[in-house]
């Protein structure tokens, strides 16, 4: 894999330092997130991961790349999308690094910047899920899968029919969405939360790294 590492050691380009600052802010929100500084590159996370065999960048390498100033390579990797959030790496990390939560932070950044192939499955699934629960307050499994396959691969729906039929006969598919009663109030809460999401408190956002300050970790704690 081609990694666009520093052309000149210690100097990050503008985009890279912006990505880095955004990432450090996200990491600072994770309880215990500052431990990312302590990575010893032992590879326990990679070894513990049940799906690392199908990743292009190993979990260990994610932190190495971050240190090398290659945020873009991380955000373009397949790795952050394959993570099934099983937390095996998190509980085994000898330095207490919250690897899974860090991958969540990276996923959020990649989604925000739309750094993934078009009609990318996880993005579509998450968007459909968010749409449904914002609307009904509850998840609606049948609707979620329908939306997902319509947007990614409608033909696949036919191959799912036998399983859907079996589940339906067993009473395991709810044909209609369940809704909460206070949907209007929920929308008000969400509208406010949307505003809150945008607010980045002053002094928390770490400064972009300066020349000669390769790791740029000084402000996170």
């Amino acid at each position: 894999m081609a990694v666009d590492v520093l052309k000149e050691p210690g100097i990050l380009d503008k985009k890279e330092s912006e990505l880095r600052a955004a990432f450090l802010y996200q990491v600072s929100n994770i309880p215990g997130g500052e431990k990312i500084k302590k990575c010893i590159q032992c590879g326990t996370c990679t070894g513990s991961c049940p799906v690392s065999y199908t990743m292009d960048v190993m979990p260990r390498e994610i932190i190495a790349l971050f240190r090398a100033g290659a945020m873009e390579s991380i955000l373009n990797s397949r790795t952050i999308w394959i993570c099934a959030s099983c937390y095996a790496c998190t509980v085994r990390c000898p330095m207490g690094i919250k690897v899974t939560d860090i991958l969540y932070a990276l996923k959020r950044m990649a989604m925000e910047k739309e750094l993934f192939p078009k009609r990318f499955p996880i993005f579509v699934l998450s968007k459909s899920f968010v749409y449904l629960i914002n609307r009904y307050g509850r998840s609606y499994e049948a609707g979620l899968l329908l939306l997902y396959y319509l947007k990614t691969n409608p033909l696949k729906l036919f191959s799912l029919l036998p399983l859907a039929y079996r589940l339906f006969r067993k009473g395991r598919i709810a044909p209609f969405p369940a809704r909460i009663k206070k949907r209007k109030e929920l929308s008000a809460i969400l509208a406010e939360a949307e505003v809150m999401e945008m607010i980045v408190p002053e002094g928390v956002y770490p400064a972009a790294p300066q020349k000669g300050h390769v790791l740029g970790l000084a402000k996170v704690s």
Binding site: S85, M111, V130, I133, G137, S139, I180
Partner: peptide
């Protein structure tokens, strides 16, 4: 009660 947000919301927006 409403949906807990699950892993999928967590990977979209943190505060929400």
């Amino acid at each position: 009660w409403n949906c807990c947000g699950a892993t999928m919301y967590m990977s979209t927006k943190e505060t929400i």
